[in-house]
Nucleic acid binder design. Structure first.
Length: 266
DNA sequence: CTGTTTGTTTGCCG
DNA sequence: TCGGCAAACAAACA
């Protein structure tokens, strides 16, 4: 589920529903999702108040009144949900944050690929995760610098969170489709103009996805995302050129592109 | 039963 | 040192 737009929705829900509230108890149902010791979480968080969360890429950073910062990553299937204090937590809740009063918070993660961690500040956690600036706010200068002159495939580099944080598999495909660039092109072979086009499309696509609050169904019909079979309208052909949607694996990841618009270099 | 998956890390090989 | 690749993590779904 979660790429940048959905994680931003979780951030907003958390800001709205938890800020200023006191954590009374932490319930760890499955310690596999902890990147730290459970005792560290308890000492750093329990009895303290939630401050407004910050998002960088697909990670949430939740400062507490103790000064410690909770790090939340969602893996492939993670989410946050509030649940009534009188009820059981939702299915696949791995950690529950029991509040002093009112609704409780659940970290739900069916496949357990997500992780929670804790640290003294946002910067050190960001550095430890080798996380670049957020893809939505990163400057052209920094983005171009992080791209560098590597021989790696452009799609692989876009997925690299140390280049621009938050670009996931569908956004990477969407960027390259809209910028009309074949996913296996080498970054070092891209022209300055092509790199700039990638940057502009990255911003534009994220902005569009945020505007519809991460609802894929509501994205414009010409978006490539509708050809992954995730949405109601799942056309097999490109709206621009009627080219057929092609499927390959790039870096082990499912990759969709238009065989006509995204010309393979001869 | 098989093969697929919106993410990340680790280790191997050329 | 670089870059591709497979595996591992775990569970749902077709």
């Amino acid at each position: 589920m979660p790429e940048l737009p959905e994680v931003e929705m979780f951030r907003r829900a958390l800001e709205e529903g938890a800020t200023g509230r006191k954590l009374r108890q932490l319930k760890v149902y499955d310690a596999k999702v902890l990147r730290c010791q459970e005792t560290q979480l308890v000492e750093g968080l329990v009895g303290h108040f939630f401050h407004p969360p910050q998002r960088i890429g697909k990670y949430l950073f939740v400062p507490f009144s103790s000064g410690q910062v909770l790090l939340i990553h969602f893996g492939l299937t993670g989410s946050l949900a509030f649940f009534d204090e009188a009820e059981d937590p939702p299915r696949f809740t791995r950690v529950a944050f029991l509040m002093e009063s009112g609704n409780h918070l659940a970290y739900v993660c069916p496949r357990k690929f997500g992780r929670l961690d804790i640290g003294p500040d946002v910067q050190s956690l960001q550095k430890a995760r080798q996380l670049a600036e957020d893809a939505y706010t990163i400057s052209w200068e920094d983005f171009e610098h992080h791209l560098g002159q590597t021989r790696r495939m452009v799609k692989t580099v876009l997925l690299d969170q140390s280049v621009a944080a938050g670009v996931g598999n569908w956004i990477a495909d969407e960027i390259l489709f809209q910028a009309k660039i074949y996913p296996e092109r080498r970054v070092a072979d891209l022209s300055a103009e092509e790199k700039r086009r990638i940057f502009e499309k990255m911003k534009e696509i994220i902005q569009t996805a945020l505007a519809v609050e991460g609802d894929y169904e509501a994205l414009p019909a010409q978006f490539l995302i509708h050809r992954r079979g995730w949405t109601q309208a799942s056309p097999a052909f490109c709206e621009n050129c009627t080219g057929e949607t092609e499927y390959i694996k790039v870096g082990g990841r499912a990759t969709y592109f238009c065989g006509v618009c995204q010309k393979k270099p001869g």
